[in-house]
Design a protein around this nucleic acid. Structure first.
Lengths: 210, 210
DNA sequence: ACCTGAACACCGTTCAAGT
DNA sequence: ACCTGAACACCGTTCAAGT
């Protein structure tokens, strides 16, 4: 409850801008936020944000960096509690990805569509993105070696499984699921069971030894 | 070559607006177009478009309607030339979907993200969308009955396969494939082989009779 | 019937001036 | 060092006036 008059210097404006941008985005459901509105809500002038970010794109880059890092942390944390079998871990990965997307829909749209920032301009974005990708590659390889998945070229297989999780999550955040007759209250469960249906349907030509 | 002075009445402004909106969108790669720029390019005043569309959203709805219809026609046309086996037809469907997306990336982003129009406000959008969905449902059912796919609840299975094609296409149009080490010149082939890898890896528990 | 163009309330961004 | 606030060049949208 700070009801003293706002000081001339905000003090932590940079981080406050990033946080408020996330708040506004998730509130409105639009990944394209107005810099002026963010400034207004923080009680600073319309020019203040440009002391910390050269333009809106660079503010959105900062938002995307934090969001991508949180997704990575979520995935890594969930894997700590996952069973040891590679295929089960792969399903955990997919579930974490989908759950994060559904609980942070606007941030998910922002980071995945990449419309509002330059992915390669960031030092951390590619790092966090690749961390999740490397986990995917490793688990697919292990599942193939364990005979839990068909053989097949690693990059394409991992890409396809990621695309499956990505596509399911995006259909929800894009609002397509009602047209697929998915009950809006069971979207998350339906998406995860759809994912598992595919992963469990993938079988090596020779059943792996029990 | 009409170099006479532009008449006061454009004559076919409505359709010209829709066509120019598509042109501007695919040229700039941004699905959010400026109504003023569309008007400018057509040599009409900034207010003219609002004689034909109450707002930008309704112009984008018209663009999305045409794009969705073209996708539907593309899919239906390709299936006419496809082999009779349900699974082969399902792969054809996925290939058509991906190819259309990659050749019309901005229209694909527009219709799939649904950010710029109200899907349910259109009479034709749901019709064309559902036509493609019904084809998917039919082919999955037939493939399951033919023993070419594992059994499993129809809606989730069809949803997952659509999500797979959607996710692959979107990863490309969102610019994510470079991070998956996909050669930009072979993106289409890589996506289609990724799709087929999954579809061919799906096997019923008991191999279907030859 | 259809289009013009000024007007309004917004943006993102710049920059001299303030603290 | 950091913030203000007027200014500029844009938007989407409205509407009286023109053809």
């Amino acid at each position: 409850m700070n009801n003293t008059k706002r000081p001339y210097h905000h003090g932590k404006l940079r981080q406050a801008l990033v946080d408020m941008a996330v708040t506004v985005a998730e509130e409105t459901g639009k990944d394209i936020i107005s810099v002026r509105e963010v400034a207004r809500r923080l009680g600073v002038s319309s020019g203040a944000p440009f002391r910390h970010f050269p333009n809106r794109e660079s503010l959105m880059t900062a938002v995307a960096e934090e969001a991508t890092m949180r997704l990575r942390l979520r995935v890594e944390r969930d894997l700590l509690a996952a069973p040891p079998e590679p295929l089960a871990r792969l399903k955990t990965l997919g579930r974490s990805f989908i759950q994060w997307a559904l609980h942070n829909p606007t941030q998910f749209k922002l980071v995945s569509s990449r419309r509002l920032f330059e992915f390669d301009s960031s030092a951390s974005l590619p790092v966090h993105f690749d961390a999740v990708r490397q986990i995917t590659l490793k688990l697919v390889t292990q599942a193939q070696e364990a005979g839990e998945l068909p053989t097949g070229p690693l990059p394409e297989f991992a890409l396809a499984l990621r695309a499956l999780a990505y596509g399911l999550a995006r259909m929800q955040v894009d609002g397509q699921l009602p047209q697929w007759q998915v009950d809006v209250n069971q979207a998350e469960a339906t998406l995860i069971s759809s994912l598992n249906l595919i992963v469990d349907g993938l079988r090596p030509v020779r059943p792996h030894p029990k």
